[in-house]
Amino acid sequence: MSVEFLQYLFSGVTIGATYALVGLGFAIIYNASHVINFAQGEFIMIGSMATVSFLAMGMPMPVAILLAVALAVVTGMLLQKFAVAPAKNADVVTIIIITIGASILLRGLAQVFWGKSFHALPAFSGNEPINIAGATIVPQNLWVLGVTLVIVAAVSWFFTKTIIGKAILATSHNADAAKLVGINTNMILLFAFGLSALLGAVAGIIVAPITTTSYEVGIMLGLKGFVAAVLGGLGSGVGAIVGGLILGIAEAMAAGYISSDYKDAVPFVIILFILFFMPSGLFGSRGTERV
């Protein structure tokens, strides 16, 4: 394995892990409500921009992060309660437009209150490069991978072992039946949006030291997360994670070996190709474990 390949792999896995977390957020909401939330990217933005702004107020990093995640979760729940829930019987496109409206609104608010400039979060544990078999990474890459792993493990434990998690799964399979057995489906939907906002915010915060952040950062990352979720098969958590990693690695390899000009087109070429042969994505219709 050449050093270059290893380097491309590292950068692909790091960015892919971010896509995976965002994709997982899409999957959770889709699972619970069959809604694609185009405002998902804004949770990334809220997470990272709020951390920046709380830090600037003089709060210590852990407090700032906790508050930022809490802010994103509350925003997610408000979004569900006041924008998505009232329109639950509307067409697919209508709900898409509502969430697009919400994302414009959130971006607008961020721009008014947090300004338009770019910000960098300080790295969690320094910037000293680490050498691995000739390739170099910074400690933040490890943070991204570590946090992603922990979150994925926690989420899968949550859905398989806890009552609320099982209730969400039940609701996604059959909302009416879930109601009959006494599940408060409204609460479940609220919870799903909150959880998905949490994932987005965490993703935004852990990559911000590497990628910088601004009020517009959610557009591109949100879009890539959507691609990851569809690639894996909507509603499949495993699929979203695999999809995210595939995208990240493919982008890095394309930039390294093919053409950096067309790197951004690669995810979309892949998704078209996959959908041509598997119209429900990689893990979509096979009834594998749904997260």
Partner: peptide
């Protein structure tokens, strides 16, 4: 002669190419 998108968040691949 390498390029990156205006919203890209990671350019290590392009720089690795330059490095080599």
């Amino acid at each position: 002669d390498e390029t990156y998108g205006p919203k890209d968040t990671d350019m290590t691949a392009q720089l690795t190419k330059i490095k080599s």
